[in-house]
Design a protein around this nucleic acid. Structure first.
Ligand SMILES: Nc1nc2c(ncn2[C@H]2C[C@H](O)[C@@H](COP(=O)(O)OP(=O)(O)OP(=O)(O)O)O2)c(=O)[nH]1
Ligand SMILES: [Mg+2]
Ligand SMILES: [Mg+2]
Ligand SMILES: [Zn+2]
Length: 598
DNA sequence: GCCGTTTTCGGCCCGACTGTTTTCAGTCG
C-alpha cells in the first residue's frame, strides 16, 4: 500500500464518519492526515518500520495505531466498521463535481434498491434515475438540484472536467497566455498568479489568479469569454472558475485594490498555512480573511493593500510563498528566524550540462556546442560550468577504448577553450569543468573504467536504469556508487519523472549520511519534469547536514534558463545560499570541486 | 483525533456560491 492509497483510505473513513455524524474535528483530523501523508516524500511504510509514524504531522497516537494495524494485517477493523456501512458505489460518485459525501450517500442508497439493474454501473444507474426524474423527490433535493446533477454527470462522462495536476512549467505557459488576454481589459489594474503556482510547487492542481479591477462585473464577464474556455464551472460576484482545453481549471478572484494585500495572502495559501495563521490570529481576537483583518471586539475590518503590511499587523515577518506550507514558518516568522532563502541571482554556475560533443554516448547527447553554452553561461552571470556528457557506451567498447575516448574528449575541449580562446572570449566564465554524468550500474559499480577518471575533473553519478529494486538493495547500490573517487554530485537522486515515473525506493537517511561523509553534493535537478531532489527530501537532507548543487541537466542551451525551477525547489526545502555549493564564487567552489585525495 | 516556550484539556479558519430553505446545508476553495 503506497502513500496515495493510504491517504485514500483515510479519506474514505473520514467520509463515512461525516455521514454517520461523527465529530467534525475528528473528520478534519483524518482529512488533514490524509493530505499530509499524500505529500510525504518518503514511503510511509518505511516510516512505519522505523517506528516514526507519529512524527508525521497530523498523525497522533490513535492514527499511528490504526496505520500499524493496516500495515500489519492489511486492514483496520475500526475503519471497516465504518466504511462497511456505506452503500456500494458511493465512493465512485464523489468524482462527479457538486456531489459530496451527503449527496453521494443518498444517491447510492437509492441506486442500490431493487428497481435498478445492479449489474449496471453506478453511473448508468444514476443516469436512469435522472432520466426518470426521481432524484427531485428525494428529501433535500429539488428540480434544480436534479438538473445540476444531470449536468455534472454529463460533464463527467464527456471528460469535461479537471484533469491531473500539471507541471509548474506548463502552468507558467498557460498563465502567460492568459495574461496577454486579461491585459486587454482596461478595468484590470493588477494581475497575480497565486495558490500553488505562487508557492512554486512542482505541480499545480489549478491556476489561481487574482485581479484588481475597477469594474468587477465586467472583468468577470470578460474572463469567462476567454477563447480557450470549454466550460464555465462557477460564476459569481466575486469571481469565476473556468475550465480550458486539456482539462486545466482556472480560478479567478476579483477584488478592490484597497484589499489586494489580504487577497494575496488568502489566495496564496497554502490551505494549512492559512488555517494555522488564522488560529494564531484568533489568539489575539483577530479574524483573518481575504477581506482583511477583523477585530472581533469592535467587529471592524481593517483593509490591507499590501501583503507585507498584513503580516506585519499580526506581528510576523513577511513569509516567502514557497515555504507557506505549515511547516513551522509562522513560528519562525514570529521569532524573526526565517531562513534567508537562496535566490536565482545567487547562482554562479551550472554543473550538469550536456554538449553536442560527438562520441559514442550511452544516452542522448546535447544539441548545443561549447560556445553556445559558454555564451549563455556568461549571459547568466556564471563563473563556471560543468560539461557533463553521459559516459561512453559500454557495449562494443573495451575499457581501453573508453579511456581513449575520454582522453580525446578532454584534449578536444581544452583545444576549444585555450587554443581557440573560448575562455578568453567569455572572460566572466573562469573555468569549464570536464565531467561525465556516469550511470550507476545495478550492482552499484560505475559504468566507467576507473582510469578514465584521470581525464575528468569530477563526475556526476546518476541512476538511468533498473529503477525498481527493493529499498535495501537500491540503498546499497547507491552507497557503493557514492564511494568511488572523483564523485562530486549525485544527480537527480530519486530518478522520478513527474506524472510518468515514480521515485525509487531507498533509505534516504543512509544515502544522505553517505553524501555528507564523502562530501558529495546532492543535485537539485531543475528540469521541470524532474525537480529532483524533491522539496521535501531537500528539507530532510538539510537536516542531515548535506549540501547541494542546483543544475539544469540541459540538453539544449535554452534549458539552462530552467535554473529558477531548481532554485524554487531549494527554497521550498528551506535552503539558504550557504547550503548551495554553486552559489560560491569560483575560487571557493573550485577548492571543493578540485580537492585531491580521491 | 491532534496539539501545546504562556495550555496535556479545550480549543479547532473562513468565505463564495447554490439550492431549498424561513435561517441553513452542502460543496468547494
Ligand atoms: N482559509 C482557507 N483557504 C483556503 C482553503 N482552501 C483553499 N484555500 C486558499 C489557499 C489555497 O492556496 C488557495 C487556492 O486553493 P487551491 O485549492 O487551488 O489550492 P492550491 O493552489 O494551494 O493547490 P493546488 O495545486 O491547486 O491543488 O485558496 C481553505 O479551506 N481555507
Ligand atoms: Mg490552486
Ligand atoms: Mg483553486
Ligand atoms: Zn544529465
Amino acid at each position: 500500500m503506497n502513500n496515495k492509497q493510504v491517504s485514500e483510505k483515510l479519506r474514505e473513513v473520514a467520509i463515512a464518519y461525516e455521514i454517520l455524524g461523527e465529530n467534525r474535528f475528528r473528520i478534519n483530523a483524518y482529512n488533514q492526515a490524509a493530505d499530509s501523508i499524500e505529500n510525504l516524500s518518503t514511503d510511509i511504510q518505511q516510516i512505519w518500520q522505523r517506528g516514526d509514524l507519529q512524527k508525521i504531522p497530523g498523525v497522533g497516537g490513535s492514527l499511528a495505531q490504526h496505520l500499524d494495524e493496516l500495515f500489519t494485517k492489511g486492514s483496520v477493523k475500526h475503519f471497516e466498521e465504518f466504511t462497511n456501512k456505506m452503500p456500494a458505489g458511493m465512493y465512485d460518485l464523489l468524482i462527479i463535481r457538486t456531489i459530496g459525501p451527503k449527496t453521494a450517500f443518498k444517491l447510492s442508497k437509492l441506486l442500490n434498491e431493487k428497481p435498478y439493474n445492479q449489474r449496471a454501473s453506478i453511473y448508468e444507474r444514476l443516469e436512469t434515475a435522472l432520466n426518470n426524474k426521481v432524484i427531485q423527490d428525494l428529501e433535500g433535493f429539488g428540480e434544480k438540484r436534479q438538473q445540476d446533477i444531470y449536468d455534472a454527470l454529463k460533464k463527467y462522462k464527456s471528460g469535461t472536467r479537471k484533469k491531473k495536476r500539471i507541471l509548474l512549467s506548463d502552468a507558467d505557459v498557460i498563465s502567460q497566455r492568459l495574461s496577454v488576454y486579461l491585459k486587454k481589459d482596461k478595468n484590470i489594474q493588477k494581475i497575480d498568479y497565486l495558490g500553488s503556482f505562487r508557492r512554486r510547487k512542482e505541480t499545480v492542481g489549478d491556476i489561481d489568479v487574482s485581479v484588481a479591477s475597477k469594474n468587477p462585473a465586467q472583468t468577470i464577464n470578460y474572463f469567462i469569454q476567454y477563447p480557450d474556455v470549454v466550460d464555465v464551472v462557477d460564476q459569481g460576484e466575486k469571481g469565476a472558475t473556468i475550465l480550458i482545453n486539456d482539462g486545466v481549471q482556472i480560478d479567478l478572484r476579483v477584488i478592490d485594490l484597497s484589499r489586494y494585500g489580504s487577497m494575496l495572502q488568502y489566495f496564496t495559501g497554502s490551505k494549512y498555512h492559512n488555517i494555522r495563521l488564522r488560529e494564531y490570529a484568533l489568539e489575539k481576537d483577530l479574524s483573518l480573511s481575504e477581506w482583511g483583518i477583523k477585530d472581533k471586539k469592535t467587529g471592524k475590518t481593517k483593509k490591507f493593500s499590501s501583503e507585507k503590511d498584513f503580516y506585519t499587523f499580526i506581528k510576523l515577518e513577511w513569509i516567502p510563498p514557497e515555504i507557506r506550507e505549515d511547516q513551522g514558518e509562522i513560528e519562525a516568522a514570529f521569532d524573526k528566524k526565517l531562513p534567508k532563502l537562496v535566490t536565482s541571482s545567487d547562482i554562479k554556475g551550472d554543473l550538469h550540462i550536456h554538449s553536442d560533443y560527438d562520441y559514442p554516448s550511452s544516452h542522448d547527447r546535447g544539441a548545443s556546442n561549447l560556445e553556445e553554452l559558454l555564451k549563455k553561461a556568461s549571459d547568466r552571470g556564471y563563473e563556471y560550468i560543468g560539461l557533463s556528457d553521459h559516459n561512453p557506451k559500454l557495449s562494443g567498447h573495451t575499457d581501453k577504448q573508453i579511456i581513449a575516448i575520454t582522453k580525446e574528449r578532454k584534449t578536444y575541449i581544452e583545444h576549444l577553450l585555450y587554443d581557440n580562446k573560448l575562455l578568453q572570449k567569455y572572460p566572466r566564465v573562469k573555468k569549464v569543468y570536464i565531467m561525465y554524468e556516469v550511470d550507476i550500474r545495478t550492482n552499484g559499480a560505475l559504468a566507467l573504467p576507473e582510469q578514465a577518471l584521470d581525464y575528468l575533473d569530477g563526475i556526476i553519478i546518476s541512476l538511468h536504469s533498473n529503477f525498481v529494486l527493493p529499498s535495501q538493495e537500491m540503498t546499497q547500490r547507491i552507497v557503493k556508487a557514492l564511494s568511488f573517487p572523483k564523485v562530486r554530485i549525485f544527480g537527480h537522486p530519486t530518478g522520478r519523472l513527474i506524472n510518468e515515473r515514480e521515485q525509487i525506493a531507498a533509505d534516504w537517511h543512509q544515502v544522505f549520511e553517505m553524501c555528507k561523509k564523502n562530501q558529495i553534493a546532492l543535485e537539485i535537478n531543475s528540469s521541470p519534469k524532474r525537480l529532483d531532489l524533491p522539496d521535501m527530501l531537500v528539507q530532510e537532507a538539510l537536516k542531515s547536514g548535506c549540501f547541494f548543487t542546483i543544475d539544469t541537466d540541459s540538453h539544449q542551451v535554452n534549458q539552462m534558463d530552467h535554473m529558477p525551477y531548481g532554485v524554487s525547489v531549494a527554497r521550498r526545502g528551506w535552503a539558504q545560499k550557504s547550503d548551495i555549493l554553486n552559489t560560491q564564487p569560483f575560487e571557493r567552489f573550485d577548492k571543493w570541486f578540485m580537492r585531491g585525495g580521491d
